[in-house]
Design a protein around this nucleic acid. Sequence first.
DNA 1: TTCATCACG
DNA 2: ACGTACGTGATGAAA
Length: 891
Amino acid sequence: MSQTDQTKKLLLLDGNSLAFRAFFALHNSLDKFTNQEGLHTNALYTFSNMLDNLLASEQPTNVLVAFDAGKTTFRTKMFDDYKGTRSKTPAELSEQMPYFSTLLDAYGIAHYQLADYEADDIIGTLAKEAAGEMPVVVVTGDRDLTQLTSANTTVKVNRKGVNDVEAYTPEYLQEKLGLVPDQIIDMKGLMGDTSDNYPGVTKVGEKTALKLLTEYGSVENLYEHVDEMKQSKLKENLINDKAQAFLSKKLATINVNAPLTVSLADTERKPVDEAALVQFYQQMNFKSKLAKLPQTGTDGEVTAPAMIAISFTELTAANLAAALAKKMRRSFVIDILGDNYHVEMPIGFAFGTDEQWYYSTDLGLLTTPTLKDWLQDPEQEKDVFDSKKTMVLMERLGAPIKAMTFDLLLASYLLDTNDNSNDLGILAQQYDYFDVQTDLEVYGKGAKRAAPTDVAVLGEHLARKARAIYQLRSELLKQLQENDQDQLYDEIEAPLAIVLAQMELAGITVDSQRLKQMQADFSKTLSEIEALIYEDAGHEFNINSPKQLGTVLFDELNLPIIKKNKTGYSTSVEVLEQLQSAHPIVQRILTYRQISKLQSTYIKGLLKVIHPDHKVHTRYLQTLTQTGRLSSVDPNLQNIPVRLPEGRKIRQAFVPSHPDWEIFSSDYSQVELRVLAHVSGDKSMQEAFKSGYDIHAHTAMKIFGLSDPSEVTPDMRRQAKATNFGIVYGISDYGLSKNIGISRQQAAAFIAAYFEQYPDVKTYIDNIVALARQQGYVETIMHRRRYLPDINSKNFNLRSFAERTAMNTPIQGSAADIIKVAMINMQKRLQTENLQAKMLLQVHDELIFEAPTTEIPILEKLVPSVMDSAVSLDVPLIVESAHGKTWYDAK
DNA sequence: TTCATCACG
DNA sequence: ACGTACGTGATGAAA
């Protein structure tokens, strides 16, 4: 045997298995991937990406992709039903199969199939041949191939998705299953394989198979000693299914002596046939692959992917005036490396038009009169990416920006909430624009993230981003118009970005002394409870570790196991509440958890993010949620405790920024149910709102068949309330039963009664699901859109989820639309009324302000009137207000 | 990085 | 029969 050549490496790919993985990885986007001829291309696209990744990461000198030859193989001769239950390859994949060879030929990669043999056998035979010649890496989606691992061969198995691989070496196999590679076939023999449809031994699965192999080593040895086993059902099954076990083992065994007509030499990589590859990409309409194709110069030197050249120059005091001489629409970009634009300093900026692009890293230039004037000139239009971030940064730099008439980030979010990214480069690709790199490529990630040391490289990137915005503008505006979303963009999201920027910049004052006082109190309480818990447990442990806590409760104290999760015992509140009477430790843990949460998230967490101005400046994420709601980060001010009295006290630390000011808060009452009453047109529900009834009590009367509100007990009201919520969330009897602790039958009866009383609600949810199925998306009252690619999925879970979101999104999303309109109108009114009051926070259905005490009576009239008139629904919108010295007191 | 948990509407 | 409420973010532990 010759010496292993470490400069060489053989990569063997299981073509069919990877094609399947590739196909199903993008199964939901099947219709997005078709070429000019109507051919589906999703599997080819993903496969070619996989191939690129593998070639880059493995750097093989030799590659072969093995395919199955046909339906019948030597295995089907041994066992008629081999792979008999396997469902037919989807037509959308079959039609792509012939093109895999075209792609591989262009890549200069060998591919091979052999009549009567499977891809596995080809791979096994070649891997054996390569032993002693060169190391081998096998890539597949099929675990059976792990039997091939050896000192020379690593088998990489794709888990879910495409990039998540598990690398099997003999050591890893030993560690994971406690088996040597040869025992994989013994395991298969005992447990069988449902996807290949061979039986194994009845009632033996992976667990039992592993146990048997640990004891007996192999199928053969097991059967030599089977008589010695003590009487059991397992023993009977083993004896009865002996023939099947041996047959299954044989079927699972890869033939490493297949009569191949290719040799190792044939697997050597040939140069990429670039012309063929370009033609292939063009035929398949792989624009991103075309754009990334390395260019070969006339001297044969390979250079970076081709991007259309850009004319950019460094901005200086000298060329500044000329750069801005003409009045025209320009795009403007300013970058920071991280996310928090309230604290980070920008690394540079760029602006210009297709004629010329300018960049600079000198932020001082922004405040020179010429540039400053241009920035704040309301007549000079600017195209940007993320107007809120841009506005905050420019305010901080003392160079306010006005007239941001196009925001690429906002526009693309409205067009499709699914493929939103905060990275301009990634987003541009969605619109087939490739002349800009991603921030990840230019700045790096994690610890390595930094501005390029070469200023020209940074300048070019900034200029390219500015150009991408400039050039994508008309396409996105056109699509917004096609979707009937131009009003949503122009009148809601774009002006809202400015309002949000103002709210973020204003910030809310936090009384850190109050927080520190609470911190000290909580610390004391925590150590007291901690001591009691250790006493109960008999030893110290980390109470915050669900794992350690589980051990204490269920292994040591032997409390009944209520629920498990994938990592072990569940110790969630639901579980602990059921265990309360079983042991005094449980109540203490519940208390500990509650205080500990307040301490870490709300006291310590909040103290960490207070700025020198004594305020917290959250960031509202305007382009994140699938429904159109905002979210809040750094810190999240939309989940400050309110339900429990202990937690609610945190709100005492949120105070006005001036003495003699107060916190003022207004919230919509049951806005989602009102939206439901409106969109469903249900007369009965609309009547209840118009008459000003307590909607939950009204619902209780309806579903319990009562004739007078006085008959409604608090418990009936509670259950009716839960049912109302359930409807909004996309009801299921199981979910409702779990939520209010009744039987599934009772829950089903509630729902039936509900639909009988509110028949138009029933019609509405049936119709909305049907509509989603037909058009692929749902809309809010302001035409906000959510695509639901899973609505027609064959997977029950995915489809059900899509159906529930089809019901919920128009409701939650329309409520979000309404408060957004209210916020824009509100900010205007504060200005036109010359009020000092400031709008500070939004918490989905409530707005929080600070204002001089003298303005409170004005706000008490103004805010509700602006909020309840934001939109006109078929039912009234009701707004409730409160005020006080702190947020806590505004209740 | 992922999971479990728990805070909010 | 399937296994579920809708939308979020922050934390600490464990991998």
